[in-house]
Design a protein around this nucleic acid. Sequence first.
DNA 1: ACGAATTTAATGCACATGCATCTAATGCTT
DNA 2: AAGCATTAGATGCATGTGCATTAAATTCGT
Lengths: 129, 129
Amino acid sequence: MPGMSSETALLDRWRSLLTCYNEVAVNLERALAEAHALSLSEFETLDRLATQNCDKRRMQELAEAMYLSQSALSRTVTRLVDAGLVERTSCVQDRRGIFVELTEAGRARHAEARHTHLAVLAEHLPAPT
Amino acid sequence: MPGMSSETALLDRWRSLLTCYNEVAVNLERALAEAHALSLSEFETLDRLATQNCDKRRMQELAEAMYLSQSALSRTVTRLVDAGLVERTSCVQDRRGIFVELTEAGRARHAEARHTHLAVLAEHLPAPT
DNA sequence: ACGAATTTAATGCACATGCATCTAATGCTT
DNA sequence: AAGCATTAGATGCATGTGCATTAAATTCGT
């Protein structure tokens, strides 16, 4: 029966991807929440802002680099604003646009959380075969 | 600076895992919903029941093999029951336990959906390097 | 230059999930 | 045998997400 073994190989790869992803994601989520009061989405948002050269990003640019819908990102940013970690500033060139910018507190929180992030990856992300 | 390149390698692997997982998961979710009115969790639940030798599983056994909390699984099963795809039958040996069992409709739905599942994996799961 | 179409981001809504709790049944200790 | 601890699974609750819609600003067509 042709294609049989490639089907099971495909399923195996998907299963192992799923296992691996969930293992890391669950532990990241827990560690970031406990140690830094951040969800994974929140950390990823801060990380995009801290990592890219300029600390000021349009919502849309942010959304493109992330695995969140536009609405989910909007609310994530709202939570970060409420926590004092980012600020929204409207953009003069196109007044529909919104800039999101790290605050000092946001930069500091990200710097702390980065270590936890790396530690969890080192512990739970299996080495490449 | 020691460990520097391994850190970026770690981050790169995590990013690519994330990208890959999201790409596949989003497409699976959409394809299964459109073509078979199933969420990924629902499909995975049916799949566990259809794949394991006996079609009758305790909630707990099911939960162990899945990436869902106990409560999420309980509600997923409730949705599948409402859709007529599985049945709950209580277990005589231990009357706290609940057996979950595929119905004929459930078996049929899984058989159809399996093809969609494989097709999406084949299309979106990158080949191993 | 004016109006329609498009784009940006926020919001109402429905819903799936996890945590904590609850109920029922079983096991364990004395 | 009685009582306490444990286990199985369901449910209340809070929350994060996506879809569809909305409001405001910009762009395009004529």
